[in-house]
């Protein structure tokens, strides 16, 4: 540094003056605008256009005509929605538990933590498509595990494309647990040491520190990361399509099949499933966020 900075009284976004709320609001609005503009365009445009297509207002051929026919096949939609929800709930629950304990191991910072850090980070970087391919190679009837254990394809349980959706759930749980761990570590890293040390100095036992310090600190991040994982699981199709059974099919797989079907008339139905998926995801994630507010209020 070479010059003496002169003292000024101009308020900045970084050093707000106590007064002038309007000005502060304007600055805050300007700061948030570069994020809000593209998100608003993409989200509102995307959902709007999907909704219009589902209502038959954006036909590929013929005239636009308002119709809710695409939402009619309720039986099949209900089965698919329940299946989608079950897969998402189970895999997110596993991912949350594994992700939290992974984060604890990483934070604890010994040699084991280092190995886990690298491995979980590697898992985060794998695209789901590749994840599905490799889980398929690992778990299929004559996959790597079956070969390693020397079990014949007939005797190997139907993990891939089986009635339990095991491979699908395993892939989502694997990838999303790494993601959840990454987010929690990011939150905890900056502050955990001081709290943990304070608790330790005050004589808190290891398990008590985990329960009373680590978990409450991690809980909001855990919830938000799990909500993201849940939403992703519900909306993505590659994994369930590659590793799932033929029937019944999750919403996203159904949407993709209808979207790609030979007859053009099925496209509104695909869009309708898109709309249903958005609503379903928003409902569950919204509930989780309300839970988060409760959690804050309660504490």
């Amino acid at each position: 540094m070479t010059a003496v900075p002169t003292v000024t009284t101009v308020t900045t976004p970084l050093a707000p003056g106590p007064a002038r709320p309007r000005r502060r609001q304007l600055r805050a609005a300007l700061l948030v605008l570069p994020a809000v503009i593209p998100v608003a365009i993409v989200v509102i445009g995307g959902v709007g256009a999907t909704l219009l297509q589902s209502l038959g207002l954006m036909p590929l051929v013929g005239a636009a005509e308002l119709s809710t026919a695409a939402f009619d096949d309720t039986d099949e939609l209900l089965t698919s929605a329940l299946l989608s929800l079950s897969i998402a709930v189970v895999s997110t629950a596993i991912a949350a538990v594994v992700g939290f304990f992974t984060a604890v191991l990483i934070i604890s910072g010994n040699w084991g933590g280092r190995i886990v850090t690298v491995l979980s980070a590697a898992a985060v970087t794998v695209p789901h498509l590749v994840g599905a391919a490799t889980v398929g190679l690992l778990l299929s009837d004559s996959g790597v595990l079956a070969r390693l254990f020397g079990i014949s394809p007939d005797a190997w349980p139907a993990l891939v494309a089986g009635p339990t959706w095991f491979a699908v759930i395993a892939e989502y749980a694997w990838k999303e647990s790494a993601f959840i761990a990454l987010i929690i570590v990011g939150t905890l890293a900056t502050r955990i040491t001081s709290y943990d040390e304070a608790a330790a100095v005050l004589g808190a036992h290891r398990s008590a520190r985990l329960r009373l310090v680590l978990f409450p600190l991690a809980a909001p991040s855990l919830l938000v990361a799990s909500a993201i994982a849940f939403a992703y699981t519900l909306g993505s199709y590659e994994v369930a399509w590659m590793l799932g059974a033929t029937y019944p099919e999750p919403l996203s797989v159904m949407a993709l099949r209808l979207f790609n079907t030979a007859s053009l008339t099925a496209r509104p139905e695909a869009a309708a499933i898109g709309v249903i998926t958005v609503v379903l995801t928003a409902a569950v994630v919204g509930a989780a966020m309300l839970g988060l507010r409760r959690m804050r209020a309660w504490r």
């Binding site: 709320p21 309007r22 609001q25 304007l26 609005a29 948030v32 605008l33 809000v36 503009i37 608003a40 365009i41 509102i44 445009g45 709007g48 256009a49 219009l52 207002l57 954006m58 036909p59 590929l60 051929v61 013929g62 005239a63 636009a64």
Partner: peptide, 25 residues
């Protein structure tokens, strides 16, 4: 008191986006 800054903007974005997509084939 300054809420009006964002809402009109959001509304404009929404209307533009939907108008761009909402036409018959």
């Amino acid at each position: 008191t300054a809420r009006r800054r964002i809402l009109p903007f959001l509304a404009t974005a929404a209307v533009t986006a939907v108008a761009l997509s909402a036409c018959s084939a």
